[in-house]
Design a protein around this nucleic acid. Structure first.
Lengths: 407, 407
DNA sequence: ATCGTTACCGGAATCGTTTCCGGAATTCTG
DNA sequence: CAGAATTCCGGAAACGATTCCGGTAACGAT
């Protein structure tokens, strides 16, 4: 194992000079520098990061903590975050932790180990962790997590309005005439985003005066297999519905297979709406209707906030982006007999939606997936009939709404 | 920021004693220990990992390096590796590096930073890195990488026979009557697994006396979008074929959408075979025929080898597992006029394959996905007509074949 | 010829922890 | 009760880098 001292000895200089070369300091003669670099190259020397971090206070490191490697949506965000961090002149260091891990403990550990200037946490949760979070003394930006309730000066967050997004999805299904809707999600812990989405589901139902039975909430893990099994046993129990809202696209795809295996057609018998808007949703057949989270915007905003906070240009910020409903082949309107009157009252809105321009942006998926020839064609352009204040969800432009909160 | 010295001062002991308490050494009196722990608790002290690692030689750490976060197949292996490491009484530390990163440089860095007892590298490459690898002085197990050519005593590997696996896939397509087959893969660098699969493709063609034009090799990245675009432009160029072999399931799914968008049916017009056997292949519609790599076995063997090597129980090991062909709805036989004679000569073999037992193991996918009701049913059980020595690929049991190589 | 400035580089302290060594206090042994 | 063994703990030297401080040499200006 080579050390800076050996390099120094072989190069005929002092350890300090090697350090200077390593850190690209200006105060070292060109020939000396080259001689040292030659030795370093020859011995394939790599500096010991522990010894380095022991003394140094990094001045350009931003740690990115990702919770849950299985979450395809987060994985898509990571590289964008990484790129943005680099583009801003900082160095990213990505640390993955387990689904069941403690992201705040990880941050505290990293704070000591690597002394970053800031954290960006993807997929974490802050519920009830105010005390622990206090100990993380550098700026923290939580992405896809609502930390708006935190009054800590160094904690920011970027997310969508999960409650509104879920409400939008259910509302869309309701407006298509669905009355019997199953909802699939994770375990409900008050304060986290799954719970918020669940509240949105209830909002949508009660706003329409439709009842939602808790037995229609299917709880499972965020994996294909778990969703498949949960849906299978639900169907086996004889529970029937005309639409499914799954709180992640992966869940939706897993459940979709169980639906198909039960001899039911999508969307003929059951419409399916996912959540997140991962790439796979567009590629799945039938293409998956979903609530798209603006991944790129979330990534960009997260890094920007972290950078601003590092530079002292602002206090804590809490940004909420709008989500958008993406229509897909997995969706159909369902005119069941008992709701025909309800549908009739919605006709006007349907007509409006059918007027949508042909270049309807991302609502129908990426450009290269539209205009499919005959055999893959599926009736799309189903109307959005949400309540007025939800209309923004159907907007093509994704706008951030900031609510600054300085301390 | 608290240090061990402050703790010592407040507890009225020497720093060394605090260190002993921290590391649970036996040679410290009960009362002293409790007094120290009380102070630690009070100040919420956390030891500085850098200072710790600077001197300590870990005695239970195994570093897992994963190259390419986007690779769904690898992601599936990670948690199994992690669990196996823990079950073996060691501590896993997972480090992800970029697709374009240098896994061996990462190992060298980690070797200094964390002083692990061994490395497990997922998805890396060793081609031409013998010199660099020498510097990594602890046992290294490369998974999904063939390092059999390395003569280093501390380098092991676990993989499938990529060449044989690809040959098997093409051979299956040929035996189904396909003569015009497109192959989709990454860039061909001699020595890596993509190149090996490419060689297997050529093997299969030449063994049958069928020619394979290089223009039928579609090069793209390992992503849905990249595969989609590559396939789209291929089809736009007017290139036609009756089957596609993609070197990853993700590529296959991306390409499948382009095929569908071009108005072609899968498998009616084009059969598709993927590679890896990720979960999504079973959930995709039509379910994707693929070459399944035994992920669980690869994970298990990788960790076992690392542990054996740590304990000095063996030298370098190079294990190759068999892969298996998994039939799927994306596959059909294609009796084109000019090959009807060829098909006829294969009849006997077809009959043999149809004799396969109903409990045909994982060949038709996981148990819960079999025996689908009518509308999802697809004619399966198409015969395997590979050459005799390839028959193992159709075997239900997955067997490891070891070739010990001590130095 | 002397001084001041600058460029360059070595010595030594420092970071927070572990570990070796040895001393003191205690207990065991005969 | 003397000597030996054991237990417990403090002092100090690592570990590998950075950085402050000071010193030397070169150079132009006075």
């Amino acid at each position: 194992m080579n050390t800076i001292k050996e390099i120094a000895k072989l190069a005929g200089v002092a350890p300090a000079t090697v350090s200077r070369v390593l850190n690209n300091r200006p105060d070292v003669r060109k020939e000396t520098k080259e001689a040292v670099l030659a030795v370093i190259e020859r011995l394939k020397y790599t500096p010991n990061a522990n010894a380095k971090n022991l003394k140094m206070i990094s001045n350009n490191l931003i740690c990115v903590i990702v919770k849950g490697i299985g979450n395809l949506f987060l994985v898509g965000i990571i590289e964008m975050v990484q790129a943005r961090v680099e583009a801003s002149g900082y160095m990213p260091y990505v640390q993955y932790i387990d689904e069941a891990g403690d992201e705040i403990a990880a941050a505290r550990q990293l704070l000591i180990e690597r002394k970053p200037l800031a954290f960006v946490v993807l997929g974490g949760s802050v519920a009830g962790r105010e005390r622990d979070l206090e100990a993380v003394s550098v700026p923290c930006v939580f992405a896809t997590t609502d930390a708006g309730c935190m009054a800590l000066p160094h904690v920011s967050s970027v997310c969508i309005d999960d409650r509104k997004a879920a409400r939008m999805a259910i509302d869309r299904l309701l407006s298509l005439g669905h009355r019997s809707i199953a909802v699939m999600g994770g375990s409900l812990r008050p304060g986290d985003l799954i719970h918020n989405r669940y509240l949105g589901v209830r909002d949508a139902f009660s706003a329409r005066g439709v009842s939602f039975q808790d037995q229609n909430y299917i709880e499972c893990k965020f994996s294909l297999d778990s969703a498949y099994q949960a849906m299978q046993s639900t169907l086996t129990c004889g529970i029937r519905f005309t639409a499914l809202f799954a709180m992640s696209d992966i869940m939706a795809i897993g459940a979709a297979r169980a639906v198909a295996d039960a001899g039911l057609a999508i969307p003929g018998d059951i419409s399916v709406v996912g959540f997140d808007g991962i790439d796979m949703a567009r590629y799945y057949i039938p293409s998956l209707a979903t609530v798209r989270q603006p991944a790129a915007e979330i990534a960009r905003a997260s890094v920007e906030i972290a950078v601003r906070r590092i530079r002292g240009e602002s206090g804590a910020e809490h940004v909420r982006f709008d989500s958008e409903f993406v229509a897909g082949q997995s969706l159909s309107n369902q005119y069941t007999s008992e709701q025909s009157d309800d549908i009739a009252s919605q006709k006007g809105v349907f007509k409006h939606a059918q007027d949508s321009k042909p270049d309807a942006g991302t609502v129908d998926g990426p450009r290269h997936l539209r205009n499919r020839p005959g055999r893959n064609r599926y009736p799309e352009g189903l109307g959005f009939t949400g309540r007025p204040e939800d209309a923004a969800g159907n907007d093509r432009r994704v706008q951030g709404r900031k609510s600054g909160k300085d301390v």
